[in-house]
């Protein structure tokens, strides 16, 4: 069955266990990023390392076909196009996050909020988590997250294809 190019059973088993943990850590870092170490960038990089592990151990075909369900064709289509849409969405989200305050200021009609003005909402009595802080900076961080994931996966896909 196995040829010399195949990865070992150990590697495949480890990856299966490690990838969900990496992804969970990435989400945790993303959520706490506004006032603790973490944030969109580092969470994005961590997410891509999870993808990279799958890519290295199970191969590009498996990652794109079986996991992401995209075909590979052309420079703007298929997987690369999909990654492109990811960072486009991220960029749009990050840019809009700043404008949100201006729009809100206009809507509320009681004074003006400048571009990039931030706010925060606390949600109490959440089961298990107890208290969640949702800052507007989270939207920006989410945008950064998608930009990093999309851009790094694009690089991985383009370079990996050659």
């Amino acid at each position: 069955m196995s040829s010399e190019t195949d990865t070992t059973v150990i590697a495949r088993t480890v990856v299966r266990v490690v990838v969900p943990i990496i992804l969970l850590t990435a989400v945790a870092l993303l959520l706490q990023g506004h006032n603790l170490p973490g944030g969109g960038f580092i969470a994005g990089v961590l997410t891509v390392t999870a993808f990279a592990l799958v890519y290295i151990v199970f191969g590009r075909e498996f990652l794109q076909r079986s996991l992401l369900h995209v075909e590979e064709d052309g420079f703007l289509g298929g997987a690369i196009g999909e990654y492109g849409r990811t960072f486009t969405f991220g960029l749009a989200l990050a840019a809009s996050a700043g404008v949100g305050s201006i729009v809100l200021g206009e809507l509320l009609d009681d004074g003006q909020f400048e571009f990039l003005t931030q706010g925060v909402v606390f949600v109490y009595h959440v089961p298990v988590y107890h208290e969640i802080e949702i800052p507007t900076a989270l939207f920006f961080d989410l945008g950064v997250y998608f930009v990093v994931v999309g851009a790094l996966l694009t690089i991985l896909a383009v370079v990996g294809r050659e």
Binding site: L76, G81, G84, R85, F87, T88, L91, A92, A95, V99, I102, Q112, E114, F115
Partner: peptide, 25 residues
């Protein structure tokens, strides 16, 4: 309307973002 100060910046930024998903058209 001091938002005008930031307007040119935002116009250029959002044009850049808007031209990204239109790469196939």
């Amino acid at each position: 309307m001091t938002d005008l100060v930031v307007a040119p910046l935002l116009v250029a930024l959002f044009t850049a973002v808007a031209t990204l998903p239109l790469r196939s058209a």
